[in-house]
Amino acid sequence: MLTPEPRSVLIATDLAKTFPDERGGLNIFNHINIRADAGESVAIIGPSGAGKSTLLSILAGLDEPSEGTIELLGQPLTGLDEASRAELRANHISFVFQSFQLLPELSALDNVQLALEIQGHPNPAQQAGYWLDRVGLSHRHQHTPARLSGGEQQRVAIARAFATEPSLLFADEPTGNLDEKTGTEIIEQLFELNRQLNTTLILITHDASLAQRCQRRLYLHNGTLQEQ
């Protein structure tokens, strides 16, 4: 019996990014190709300034490549207008950032609930509470980010990311602002939830030991991306 081919969640082909400057253009990378299948974890590693976060922004449709194409779940992402890209992101993509990216005036519950409301979830408050409980913050629903520790803020961000049940999760240096012990706990939780939901994970990091947790590792350096 033939084993079915894995479903490709993300396919990027011949990506290039050039920023204009006084000398005619600063080339960040060229001929980048990435494929990530359902449930797969992929680390993109490389030195600071290599363009990892720029690549993430392009893969997520937050920025456009100078050349190349991106498909998300079989749908073309490149060439869409911003409203269409935003709709695809809302329905299929979540993020966990180094800086947490929580709205400071909202409670933990409201930060998670807002993402669900944008997606059109029928019971956003109930679902937001469920996910906060799931990441160990049952006693912090009404706390604003200023009243939470760094680790707790990142747990809210993780709850928000998984509450919408995304097909694809981008994590950009998710432990960068945390101490080692807290960072380890956050990563354990991130990978466990990712496994349970079978989410495709693309992890941006400079931490080689963290990258080893992923099934595949891609090294971005001098404008090229090579599989390790």
Rank of each mutant, 00 (worst) to 15 (best):
L72W: 08
H141C: 09
L225M: 11
L88G: 09
E82N: 14
T54M: 04
V156C: 01
N222I: 03
T184I: 06
N177R: 02
P104D: 07
V9W: 07
R216Y: 04
E192H: 13
L72C: 11
D14H: 14
N194L: 00
V135R: 00
R147V: 02
T205R: 08
L218F: 02
K181Y: 10
P124M: 10
A211F: 10
E227D: 08
Q113D: 08
A163C: 12
D37C: 07
S48V: 04
D21R: 12
Q215I: 06
Q75C: 00
T200N: 02
C214R: 00
D81W: 06
R23D: 12
A90Q: 08
G151M: 08
A163Q: 04
N198C: 05
N123H: 15
S149P: 11
A128E: 11
R35K: 13
N33E: 06
R160D: 03
L15T: 07
G176I: 01
N111G: 02
L203M: 13
L193P: 09
Q212A: 15
L103W: 08
E67L: 12
N177P: 07
P20N: 03
E188Y: 06
L220D: 00
E22T: 12
A60I: 11
L197H: 13
S41E: 08
L197K: 13
Q196R: 14
L59W: 01
Q126I: 09
R155T: 08
R155I: 04
A50M: 07
R134M: 11
G176M: 05
D207F: 10
T224F: 01
G68S: 09
R155V: 03
T18L: 04
Q196K: 13
E67H: 14
D179S: 12
T200A: 13
Q98C: 05
L2G: 06
H143S: 15
Y219M: 11
V96P: 03
K52M: 00
Q126T: 15
L169A: 04
G151K: 05
A157H: 02
S53Y: 11
I44T: 03
P20V: 10
L220T: 07
P145W: 15
R23G: 10
T205M: 10
R147N: 13
G25Y: 04
L193D: 04
